[in-house]
């Protein structure tokens, strides 16, 4: 009986380490596979995302006949504004490890790093479209004073397990006309 108790206690202490080992083993196998998967699909997925966002944007513009977003600071000179309120939309986007490698090579030769530019501008277009959709869903007629922020999600302090991505955040004031 006492042996079982000792084994049990040892087991409880060893369990986290065993799980951690298992995790790293799975990660070691999965990571190269996912890298290759990313190499094969990331470019096409990005193009698909850009295409899809553009299609949604076109349909929004077609239904409203104009772009509801504007960056003007002063709200439109109209006296029939009945309501206003803050709205925002965000998204976190990252390049694949393969795209990071391409960017590294681009960096060596200098010039524009097209891969990053494409990822970030695709993310920005997507977030702006989300803001439009949020505004329509909430019943606003217009969104004024739109600001777009980009924040690096990669903390400089941690070396291990860092996420390579940027957060795009768009906010503005929705206004309702009577």
């Amino acid at each position: 009986m006492a042996e079982f108790a000792i084994l049990g206690i040892l087991g409880i202490f060893a369990l986290p380490f065993l799980l951690l080992t298992l995790f790293w083993a799975i990660y070691g196998i999965a990571m190269p596979l996912m890298f290759i998967w990313g190499m094969l699909t990331s470019g096409r997925n990005l193009d698909k995302m850009i295409e899809e966002t553009n299609a949604r944007e076109r349909s929004t513009r077609a239904t409203l006949g104009r772009d509801p977003l504007s960056t003007v600071d002063r709200w439109m000179v109209r006296s029939d504004v009945t309501n206003s309120g803050l709205i925002y939309a965000s998204g976190v986007f990252g390049p694949s490890y393969w795209q990071l490698m391409i960017a590294w090579v681009n960096n060596l030769t200098g010039g524009s790093v097209t891969v990053f530019q494409k990822v970030i501008s695709a993310g920005r277009a997507e977030v702006m479209q989300r803001l439009r959709e949020n505004a329509i869903e909430a019943g606003w007629d217009d969104v004024v004073n739109v600001r777009i922020d980009t924040a690096d999600m990669t903390p400089q302090s941690s070396q291990r397990g860092r996420i390579r991505g940027v957060e795009v955040f768009a906010y503005g004031t929705g206004i309702k006309y009577s």
């Binding site: 998204g91 976190v92 990252g94 694949s96 393969w98 990822v119 996420i163």
Partner: peptide, 23 residues
């Protein structure tokens, strides 16, 4: 999951959700 998604690239939905809640 987000770390694995990062290898393949694209939107990291977990972090989008995190930042939305935080905001």
């Amino acid at each position: 999951f987000a770390g694995l998604k990062n290898i393949v690239g694209g939107e990291l939905a977990q972090y989008t959700e995190l930042l939305q809640e935080s905001r």
